[in-house]
Amino acid sequence: MKAFTYERASDAKAAVRAAAETPGARFIAGGTNLLDLMKLEIEQPQHLIDVSRLPMAGIEETATGGLRLGAAATNSAVSADERVRARYPVLSEAILAGGSPQLRNKASVAGNLLQRTRCAYFYDTSKPCNKRQSGSGCGALEGLNRNAAIFGASDACIATHTSDMAVALTALCADIETLTPSGDARRFPLADLHRLPGETPHIETHLIAGELITAVVLPPPPPGAQAYRKVRDRASYAGGLASVAVAGGQVALGMVAHKPWRAEAAEAALSSGASASEAIAQELAGASPLGRNDFKIPLVARLATAVITDVAGRAA
């Protein structure tokens, strides 16, 4: 790890102020992804602002019948919350499909959203990676890219976003609340948080530098059942090959793109009466596999069809 200085923020406004004033500053909460990357010097912050003890770990009801998840709430706390389990089971299931209990006990809501890709070429600092070092090239493009994106990739980057939680939140049409460096609060759809890689895969979100996520806001649950399913190479404690989150008629896919992938084409087809398999076929018509990850097309088709059908059956 490169040397850095550390401070524990006293409140959120002080945290964003410090971030704005200190060169190379980064927020740290659970640190399960940031420290992993700092040890490899993929991340090299000069200053860490610890926001894990700010009073934003609570889970509270919103006026509109939704839930506000504090950004510093641990993944475990969210997945175990009885309101989450009762009203947003897809979220609890998705969180529980990720990492390990120990990681979930430490990882925060915001940190989970901002976790970086697990692409092997990103992790090996001797390999070219435009995400790690802009302009160095993409080692994965012609490499062992079995787990690469099938939607929205570019020649600069074919990495996937590997969060499970974010897939469920996308299907639930969650918003995020932030504090900007100037101390202003703002709120926008989670769908607008992550970017597709384009030519700048090192820029992963639409956050302003030094902007702090303070909460995730869940709207009231959509009518219908919910489910999350993830496919992976071993039974637990492994990144996914693909996942699907379904909440009523809302569908999101995981590990298929640089961001959690809202399956809008499939949703539109479903709402106009298409079968689950027809709907997901519409979505996959827009996919661009690379060869080694071709299997994701039938995998996603079968997985999403099964889960959408199952959820529809449960709702009926």
Binding site: R118, A120, Y123, D233, R234, A235, S236, Y237, A238, G239
Partner: peptide
């Protein structure tokens, strides 16, 4: 060990 997968308890 996140990319070379040995069996875990759940396997």
């Amino acid at each position: 060990l996140a990319q070379y997968l040995v069996p875990v308890q759940a396997d």
